[in-house]
C-alpha cells in the first residue's frame, strides 16, 4: 500500500528541526528511522500533513563520552548503537537489548531515539532506559530540557515530549565497577515484538547482590520498574533470586492480546526476571 500524500521537510540542525516541527503544527509528524512510522502510513492508519525528517541532523547522530555519562544521539541507528565501543564499555545492556529488536534491516534504519519516542510498551529499549536511569534531552521552542526516564513514559505511545519538542539525545549514566546486566526477551517468532522482556542490572558486592534495577517490557501501558523485586534483591544472595523474582508482576497491569493474556504475562515476568537476574550475575 501507498501512504497518503504529505509534505516533506528535511532540516539539517536541531534548531531547524524545532522550527519545522513548530511550523508543521499538530498534524505534523517527526520521521526518525521510519521503521514504525512508515508501515503505519502505508496502512493509512495515520494522515500527517507534514513529515519532518531528522535523517540529516548530524548533531543527533553518534555516541560520545561526556564524563559521567555517555550520550547517544537520538538519530543513532540501532545498528550503530550495537556496535559502538562506548556503549559496549559503559552500557552493554543497551547493546544486548538493541540486538533483539526486529531484524538486521530494521536495525540499519531504526533509531535509538525514534524507538524511545514512539513509546510502544512492547519496545525493548524503554525498560532498559528505565533500569539504567537514562536522561532524555529534548529541544523545543523554549530551549533544551532534561527528562528523567522515570518521567518520560506517560502512557501507551505517549511521552513527556510536548508536541513541539524533539528528543535529541539520551544520556546514559556510567555505572562504574561491579555492575552487570542482562536483557531477557520472550517472543513467539524471531522478528516479533516482546511478549514480555526483562532488563536486569545488578551490582554485586562480596558475593551478594548489593543493588538491582529491573525494567519490564510490555507489562503495562508504559515500561515499568519492578520495584518490589529490586528491594527484595537488595542485599540478597544469589540463592534468593528466585524468591525475589516472584514479586516481578506486583502492581503491573499488562495487556491481553494474541500473544498472551495478562495473567500469562505476569507469570512470564516472574520467570524471565529470575532468568535475567541470574544471567546478569553469571549463574
Amino acid at each position: 500500500m501507498i501512504p497518503a500524500p504529505f509534505e516533506y521537510v528535511r532540516p539539517s540542525s536541531v534548531a531547524e528541526a524545532v522550527s519545522a516541527i513548530g511550523a508543521a503544527g499538530e498534524d505534523g509528524k517527526i520521521l526518525a528511522g521510519g521503521q514504525s512510522l512508515i508501515p503505519v502510513l502505508r496502512l493509512r492508519l495515520a494522515y500527517p500533513t507534514t513529515l519532518v525528517d531528522l535523517g540529516r541532523v548530524a548533531e543527533m547522530q553518534g555516541v560520545r563520552d561526556d564524563g559521567d555519562a555517555i550520550v547517544i544521539g537520538a538519530m543513532t541507528t540501532h545498528h550503530d548503537v550495537m556496535h559502538d565501543p562506548l556503549v559496549a564499555e559503559h552500557a552493554p545492556l543497551i547493546a544486548q537489548a538493541t540486538g533483539t529488536i526486529a531484524d538486521p534491516q530494521v536495525r540499519h534504519r531504526g533509531t535509538f531515539g525514534g524507538a524511545l519516542s514512539h513509546a510502544d510498551p512492547a519496545g525493548d529499549l524503554g525498560a532498559v532506559a528505565l533500569a539504567l536511569g537514562c536522561e532524555f534531552v529534548a529541544s523545543g521552542p523554549g530551549g533544551e530540557r532534561r527528562i528523567a526516564a522515570s518521567e518520560f513514559f506517560h502512557d501507551y505511545l505517549t511521552t513527556a515530549l510536548a508536541p513541539d519538542e524533539v528528543l535529541t539525545q539520551v544520556r546514559v549514566p556510567k555505572l562504574g565497577a561491579g555492575w552487570s546486566s542482562h536483557y531477557e526477551k520472550f517472543n513467539r517468532v524471531a522478528q516479533a515484538w516482546s511478549i514480555v522482556g526483562v532488563a536486569a542490572l545488578v551490582r554485586r558486592d562480596n558475593g551478594s547482590i548489593a543493588e538491582a534495577r529491573i525494567g519490564l517490557t510490555n507489562m503495562g501501558s508504559t515500561p515499568v520498574r519492578a520495584a518490589a523485586v529490586e528491594s527484595a534483591l537488595a542485599g540478597a544472595d544469589v540463592g534468593s533470586v528466585a524468591a525475589a523474582a516472584e514479586h516481578a508482576a506486583d502492581g503491573t497491569n499488562p495487556p491481553s492480546d494474541l500473544s498472551g493474556q495478562a495473567d500469562y504475562r505476569q507469570h512470564l515476568a516472574r520467570v524471565l526476571t529470575k532468568r535475567a537476574v541470574l544471567a546478569a550475575v553469571g549463574s
Binding site: I38, H79, Q105, V106, H108, Q191
Partner: peptide
C-alpha cells in the same frame, strides 16, 4: 505492508534496508 517479509531488501549506502520502509526522498 509492515516491513516483515524482507522481499524488498536492497543495499542503501552499504547496508541492507527494506526498501518498502524507506521513502525515496530519504
Amino acid at each position: 505492508d509492515t516491513s516483515n517479509c524482507g522481499a524488498c531488501t536492497v543495499d542503501l549506502d552499504g547496508r541492507s534496508v527494506k526498501s518498502c520502509t524507506v521513502l525515496a526522498v530519504q
